[in-house]
């Protein structure tokens, strides 16, 4: 059953569960929250493709599986290609009357940022360009967590990882985060959205919308990782929320080219509220935090310009 758009509170989320307990994801893992929500919203007529990564290795270790809907993993860099094949097969078999008769089967790839922004970008770009009717969800935990917190193209500026250590010459990652939703949007696909697990209603609405739109849809959801970002496992949602409230993680959608901020933030919190919760930014000096703040201010200005109003307000220090 697909939930109604008019969901007013999380109480209205479907009660059905297609992602079982007993998986081996870390305490407080956001990927479990995402997998649970996506399968809830789109199950049971849903096929999930997951590339190699935390979610895959923690949910499918034989003889156990957390998945209660059909699920497939093939390799690290090919989730979008595998999903293309699944989608094409459904299309062909339905047309020929051989299988999957009389219903819509959603095909959803759920991947990490490494499998999306780096090694899987080519396959993703190909699938988006070809126009397959599927949803690609990137759970962005901003590093290769499965192999032990190495930097990815999605790691933000200055963040510590095991391959962007803090030393006398380096102070965390020296480069900016790759803007993957913008890359997805550049394909001219009908739907691109950025979501957060701190705003489940907004996320659920975007998942449902992405699935119902004909053609490829891309959702980029932040996945604050207690293990890799170095914060207490109880703070997963809080960190995600602060990402939104500081304007570092703007929740928007681009539907057929129309940009809309879905969760405006009238008063912004300073970036240090977000950064200081996380061990990966503990090395930042006051000056460096100000540098990050200036960068975020610039980004927010661009967002507001694009939105046509002040969707994300000024920083207010409490």
């Amino acid at each position: 059953m697909i939930m109604d758009y008019s969901m007013s509170t999380v109480k209205d989320l479907p009660r059905e569960e297609y992602f079982a307990s007993g998986h081996r994801l870390c305490q407080g893992c956001p990927e479990a929250i995402i997998a649970r929500l996506v399968t809830k919203v789109l199950g049971p007529n849903l096929i999930v493709v997951t590339p190699t990564g935390c979610l895959e290795v923690s949910t499918s270790v034989y003889p156990e599986t957390a998945w209660k809907i059909p699920w497939i993993h093939v390799a690290f860099e090919n989730a979008a290609a595998v999903a293309s094949g699944v989608e094409a097969a459904i299309r062909a078999l339905q047309r020929k009357g051989l299988k999957y008769k009389g219903r819509k089967i959603h095909v959803v790839a759920i991947a990490g940022d490494g499998g999306t922004a780096d090694i899987g970008l080519q396959a993703l770009s190909g699938a988006l360009e070809r126009g397959h009717d599927f949803v690609y969800i990137c759970m962005d935990n901003e590093a290769y967590m499965n192999t032990g917190i190495q930097r990815s193209g999605a790691t933000p500026l200055k963040a510590w990882t095991t391959t962007t250590p803090v030393g006398s010459k380096w102070r965390g990652k020296l480069q900016l985060k790759k803007d993957i939703p913008a890359i997805a949007a550049a394909h001219g696909i009908p739907y691109v959205a950025v979501a957060s697990i701190s705003h489940l209603k907004d996320f659920a609405y975007k998942v449902k919308k992405a699935a119902e739109i004909d053609g490829p849809a891309y959702i980029h959801v932040q996945a604050p990782c207690p293990t890799g970002w170095r914060f207490d496992s109880s703070k997963t949602i809080e960190v995600a929320r602060l990402g939104v409230l500081t304007g570092m993680w703007v929740l928007y959608e681009i539907e057929r080219g129309v940009f809309k901020v879905t969760v405006p933030v009238p008063q912004r919190r300073p970036v240090e509220d977000y950064l200081m919760l996380q061990g990966r930014f503990r090395h930042l000096t006051k000056e460096e935090i100000e540098e990050v703040q200036r960068y975020v201010d610039e980004q927010v200005e661009k967002v507001n310009k694009r939105a046509g109003y002040t969707a994300i307000g000024p920083v207010v220090r409490l």
Binding site: I47, V49, I72, V74, A75, E77, N78, A80, A81, V82, A83, S84, G85, V86, E87, A88, A89, I90, A92, L93, K99, Q122, A123, S125, G126, E129, R130
Partner: peptide
Amino acid sequence: VESEHSALSAVIGASAA
């Protein structure tokens, strides 16, 4: 597809379906 890697990956997905 955009590569042979994806060619075989896509037919794996399709065959699995």
